[in-house]
Design a protein around this nucleic acid. Structure first.
Lengths: 117, 117
DNA sequence: CCCGATCGTTACGGACCCGTATCATTATCG
DNA sequence: CGATAATGATACGGGTCCGTAACGATCGGG
């Protein structure tokens, strides 16, 4: 069931999707922000600042700032954990789910256009 | 011959590779830099600042700065075009080729680990 | 009840990147 | 030649991000 992709195909796909992302300037997320966003939307909740920081191997302020930025874009929301008010629970949004879906479609679309090379 | 990948697989692959890139902090390239680097190494030379700017849909200073940064990292080199000294020809380097190769291997490796999901 | 531990956030100084505008250099054409 | 065009680099003001360090709020064990 493993995906069969050759190195040259992988690079072409990577380049083309990045070109698309750069041209659709609205989705100007860094590599870290991308990893954070996809972790939130692919991994099981709940997600906390500390948990994300550990998964990414970065410091907590990096997560806080990324959440600030993505919050402005409407991609995620934060809510205080009522049972432990020190914690903050990161929540998904409709806009974020749509953005992730669009990214998936973009990758799928571009992968379909790959030649045998 | 088209690559068959499902949206959920595409997202898992995208997330995992980005996680790897973030943790291997040395390769801290932005989306634009990634697009530029892969364009230089996948498309036929010669590459110029203006040409890259057009392909990416960005302004020339973006390319100049990206080449500065990638030059410091040893990923590319610049050389004056002897036949038209206004032009600068961007050249590949061994280190850059190796970095691109490692990226390709990373994507291939992570794609092999994808489940049917 | 209080003190330490833990959580997320913020302050700070420094670095990078952006787009616009401008510049020096070089080529081209009248 | 001289004027115009084109190329890449640079200056600038503004924004974002980084890691370290410190902070307030909250929990929990003694």
């Amino acid at each position: 069931m493993a995906l069969e992709i050759r190195p040259s195909q992988a690079l072409k796909l990577w380049r083309q999707v990045h070109l698309d992302l750069v041209k659709d300037s609205d989705a100007d997320l860094s590599a870290r922000q991308t990893a954070i966003l996809l972790t939130i939307y692919l991994e099981l909740p709940p997600h906390t600042v500390r948990g994300l920081a550990q998964q990414l191997g970065v410091t907590k302020p990096v997560i806080t700032r990324a959440l600030d930025t993505m919050g402005k874009l409407g991609l995620v929301t934060r809510r205080r954990d009522e049972f432990d008010k020190r914690n903050v629970v990161i929540q998904r949004t409709v806009a974020g789910a749509l953005a992730v879906e669009r990214l998936a479609d973009l990758i799928v679309q571009r992968s379909r256009e790959l030649g045998p090379g």
